[in-house]
Nucleic acid binder design. Structure first.
Length: 376
RNA sequence: GCUGGGGUGGUAGAGUGGUCAAUUACACUUGGCUGUAAACCAAGCGCCUUCGGGCUUCGUAGGUUCGAAUCCUACUCCCAGCA
């Protein structure tokens, strides 16, 4: 995997870049729609691509459970199988240890050796280690492989955060060793990349320690995890600010699980190159959508009943070019799946259009000027 | 016309003397959602309220009772079967 920064900005960490993967080249800053179980929910890969997606995210935990990485490998890899011909980043399952463990008692537990899961489908016991998480992702066909990390919840004690940083650091080391043992030359020839993940929650020293741990290892990219776990926007900003100045500029920076349009702007200003988030598609399935000025609305609100205009007069997405808010509300209220699809298309368009604007403003040295009011 | 069954809040449908302003579901209203256990979750949903409570409701009108959505009578409407 290769990354090169293309254009940087004065008075900001914002930058554009190019990420080269086995399945194609990506313009950064980039947003990766989440295709947890092999589909961006409600949309076809062709639709996702046409909206402007260059890379999508698939999930180790979910795909391991169903249908299993062996089947996907036998079918020629996730890209071929689902007919997404571009790059795919596979998440490791570290977040599921948090989300299943935190919200469902005893369905996931993290130890120094790895993460034990009880399948949410049939209760079957699973055990992921840093090594097995990589093996599964390679079988799935991930272009970018994420290490298994220990994602601490919010709020978390300093002790818990310390443990997360220590364990994540140790796992990171095991991960790079495994990556090499399994043939780093081959990996590099294939052009696949391995990303490390920084933890540390809202603790400045621990964030900086974790960044040091991760950046000392030969990772192809640096991810920031342990955010978007319920801490809120201001806390998230603080967590990133702790380390923004020390991010290795030669490697891509990936903020995991973010986000909202406003968060993308702020975090790109802080030097983030990559994002993924379920919000555009999940909000859509819940009737919510963003306007071009980054406000959240919900189409179920009675006031949209007679709105014959589109969701947002300034939006040029396929949904807004074609359908009225009134009709979209009707579709959602009557559980027509078309409504969920059209809102997913709109929300993803809002994100991709924003990123196009941001990239071009960076290239034109206009980023700070244009997005100034939204940067802090 | 006769016989039997039944009319409960927007809808369906519980409830058969007090713990019923009335279970539940759906609908509706409003919130929430940030590496997807998520087309989900939460709250509200007769009227008024100084949030203690007050008032009017279970086809209509009477009645029994300390007390009725629940028992009785009449009326009315609906359904099934028979004429």
């Amino acid at each position: 995997m290769k990354f090169s920064a293309r254009h940087t900005v004065k008075n900001s960490h914002a930058r554009t870049g190019i990420l080269t993967t086995p399945h194609g080249v990506i313009q950064t800053p980039v947003f990766m729609p989440v295709a947890t179980s092999g589909a961006v929910k409600t949309l076809s890969p062709e639709e996702v691509k046409n909206l402007g997606a260059e890379i999508i995210l698939g999930n180790t935990y979910h795909l391991h459970l169903r249908p299993g990485e062996e089947l996907i490998a036998a079918e020629g890899g996730l890209q071929k199988w689902m007919n997404w011909l571009g790059p795919i980043l596979t998440d490791s399952g570290g977040y599921q240890a948090f989300s299943l463990g935190a919200t469902r008692s005893k369905s996931a537990k993290t130890t120094d050796e790895g993460v034990r899961f009880f399948s949410h489908l049939d209760g079957k016991k699973l055990f992921f280690t840093p090594e097995s998480a990589i093996d599964i992702q390679l079988k799935l066909g991930g272009d970018i492989v994420m290490v298994l990390d220990d994602c601490a919840p919010f709020p978390a004690t300093e002790k818990r955060l310390y443990a997360a940083v220590k364990r994540t650091g140790e796992w990171a080391k095991r991960s790079t060793e495994h990556w090499q043992r399994e043939g780093i030359a081959l990996r590099q020839a294939q052009g696949k990349g391995l990303f490390g993940i920084v933890q540390g929650g809202l603790n400045k020293e621990l964030r900086q320690q974790s960044l040091k741990d991760i950046q000392s290892l030969p990772f192809d990219g640096i991810a920031i995890g342990g955010v978007s776990v319920g801490e809120g926007k201001q806390n998230m900003l603080a967590a990133v600010d702790f380390i923004a100045n020390d991010l290795d500029p030669t490697r891509p920076h990936y903020l995991m699980g973010v986000g909202e349009p406003i968060d993308l702007i702020r975090m790109i200003h802080r030097g983030i190159d990559m994002f993924d988030c379920v919000l555009p598609t999940r909000l859509a399935r819940h009737g919510a959508f963003w306007t071009t000025n980054f406000k959240r609305e919900n189409i179920r609100r009675a006031s949209f009943t007679n709105q014959s205009k589109s969701l947002d007069p300034k939006c040029n997405c396929p949904t807004c070019q074609t359908y009225s808010a009134s009709y979209l509300r009707h579709l959602v209220m009557t559980n027509e799946s078309l409504g969920l699809r059209l809102l997913s298309i709109h929300n993803l368009s809002i994100i991709f259009n924003l990123l196009r604007e941001i990239r071009s403003s960076i290239e034109n040295d206009n980023f700070v000027n244009k997005f100034g009011p939204h940067l802090s």
